[in-house]
């Protein structure tokens, strides 16, 4: 969430991108890549499709720039496209093959080998927990609880009412809580008995 408060005038960048300035597109891409990638990963799960989906989000976003009226933050507007693209992708069967160029280019972590393995295991388990949720519940939970958007912003991003989003988050939280407390990775961290 570090890219939420960026000291860059995004509205100026959007105006320059609308005017077709390539440097502005690149800057917007650079600023929002990490957040869009995170949303897509959490929505669609870890697969080789993620990079393709991220590209699709930016292509659709940049093509739709004329319709961006500045009523919300650009990041919120782009997040809405990320949710839509991810939900659409989930309706298609996932591509299981990993292209060679991507497989050999996994990011290196600055952590030690043990922490690295533990974090990877945690992420794999979180992906599995999120994947077990229905897509709409997953979207609401990811945006509000993990990405830190308000309920109202989340509702705008998933195109649902505030009341519907509250119900989805509530249900998702209950389901996740039940599953997480049975999961060795998370139950060890909580270190508490399962609440009623």
């Amino acid at each position: 969430m570090a890219d939420r408060f960026i000291p860059v005038d995004v509205s100026q960048l959007v105006e320059r991108a609308r005017a077709g300035e390539p440097a502005a597109f690149r800057e917007l891409f650079r600023l929002h890549l990490s957040r869009v990638h995170r949303i897509v990963h959490r929505m669609a799960g870890a697969s080789s499709d993620v990079d393709d989906l991220v590209q699709t989000v930016f292509v659709e976003g940049f093509r739709s720039l004329p319709s961006f009226r500045g009523e919300s933050l650009f990041s919120t507007w782009l997040g809405r496209i990320a949710v839509r693209v991810s939900l659409r992708a989930k309706k298609r069967p996932a591509l299981m093959l990993v292209p060679l160029d991507v497989a050999g280019d996994q990011p290196s972590q600055a952590q030690g080998p043990h922490e690295d393995a533990s974090a990877r295991e945690g992420l794999r388990r979180l992906d599995a927990l999120l994947a077990a949720l229905r897509p709409k519940k997953r979207a609401a939970f990811v945006l509000h609880a993990l990405e830190g958007y308000s309920i109202e912003e989340t509702a705008a991003m998933v195109g649902a009412s505030v009341a519907a989003v509250k119900v989805r988050i509530h249900d998702a939280r209950r389901e996740l809580e039940r599953r997480a407390l049975k999961d060795p990775y998370f139950s060890e961290r909580v270190g508490a008995k399962e609440p009623r």
Partner: peptide, 28 residues
């Protein structure tokens, strides 16, 4: 949730490396 939520938030998917980001940029 005071423990679970930070644990989940910490588990951020690793961002694309500069090389992957550059490939995406070119493709876009």
């Amino acid at each position: 949730w005071a423990t679970l939520l930070p644990s989940m938030r910490e588990l951020e998917p690793p961002p694309p490396t500069p090389l992957r980001a550059r490939r995406m940029e070119i493709e876009i």
